[in-house]
């Protein structure tokens, strides 16, 4: 595409990359704290991964191998679109294999395959503030984080239990980082929350429209909020994958007819395919 020839490596200009890189370093130094950054208008809509794209662009090296997933799958349209953007602007190698990737940009999932040291996960984040739905004002939530005043969140979780018998949050389930900041892990299913804890990979979170970057360094203690008498459970559909038979992977439910028929398949398409390969 000649249209992109006029743009810099990985699209962003160097000044913008420096600004994002400085924010990333502060984010790594203060795990779980949301660093404000001057998010740029990207050539894709806000809400479609502009934060993740800017973080990836600021991190990419020429010899990186990039994997992009949306809902766990490499072939969903927005994942295809973002992957193509970086192929075009950074001429970077791409892969669908989790193990082969050096940077994995994701929306809503953490891959099933174990991550390793040296890998970077980049999460696309719509609303980075875990307290936002309890308190809409940024000025208030910033003060709460400053004071580590998370009473509001405790009350909300407790009210859930009183009303529903369990904590009524199934995705974007809040975590506490190293006993200090309460953090939104992005809208991953709570099934994925345990993968955040003590991971060998570096986890970076970018929220473009909300202009925030935050991070979890490798080997960071990340606990999902819970109560002693209502401990956190990383739940998934109680089925095996109807394609590869995996029992430990997160599943998508697919409706197959209008008679109540359904099947369950791995949401991580690369994982599912690798198991089919093993079986064959």
């Amino acid at each position: 595409m000649t249209a992109m020839d006029a743009y810099n490596f990985a699209y962003l200009d160097e000044e913008t990359k420096r600004m994002i890189r400085r924010a990333l370093l502060k984010a790594v130094a203060i795990p779980g704290y949301q660093v404000p950054f001057a998010s740029r208008e990207m050539p894709m809509p806000y809400g479609w991964g502009t934060g993740g794209v800017q973080v990836t662009a600021a991190c990419l090296m020429a010899d990186d191998v990039l994997k992009v997933i949306d809902q766990g799958a490499d072939d969903t349209t927005n994942a295809v679109s973002i992957r193509r953007f970086f192929q075009r602007t950074a001429d970077v190698a791409v892969t669908e294999e989790t193990e082969a990737a050096t940077i994995i940009q994701t929306r809503h999932r953490i891959p099933e395959a174990a991550l390793r040291e040296g890998q970077i996960m980049v999460f696309q984040v719509p609303i980075p503030e875990p307290l936002r739905f309890l308190e809409p004002r940024e000025t208030e939530t910033r003060r709460m984080h400053a004071l580590a005043d998370y009473g509001l969140m405790q009350v909300k979780l407790y009210e859930d239990i009183a009303r529903h018998g369990e904590i009524a949050t199934a995705y974007a389930y809040p975590v506490r980082v190293e006993g200090r900041y309460v953090m939104d892990p992005s809208p991953i299913p709570k099934f994925d929350n345990p993968k955040l804890n003590d991971s060998p990979a570096l986890m970076l979170f970018g929220a473009g429209r909300e202009q925030r970057i935050y991070a979890l360094p490798p080997y960071t203690q990340v606990e999902s909020l819970d109560f002693d008498d209502h401990p956190f459970v990383a739940s998934k559909a109680d089925h095996a994958c109807d394609i590869c038979g995996a029992t430990e992977s997160y599943l998508d439910e697919v409706i197959t007819d209008d008679q109540g028929g359904r099947m369950f398949v791995c949401s991580d398409t690369a994982f599912c395919r690798s198991r089919q390969g093993d079986a064959a």
Binding site: H108, P189, S267
Partner: peptide
């Protein structure tokens, strides 16, 4: 952007809500 993004796939989050 944010309004229109809700037409992107949310299978995973919705699945989590279904289970819940």
């Amino acid at each position: 952007g944010f309004l229109e993004h809700i037409k992107l796939p949310h299978y995973v989050d919705f699945q989590a809500e279904l289970e819940l």
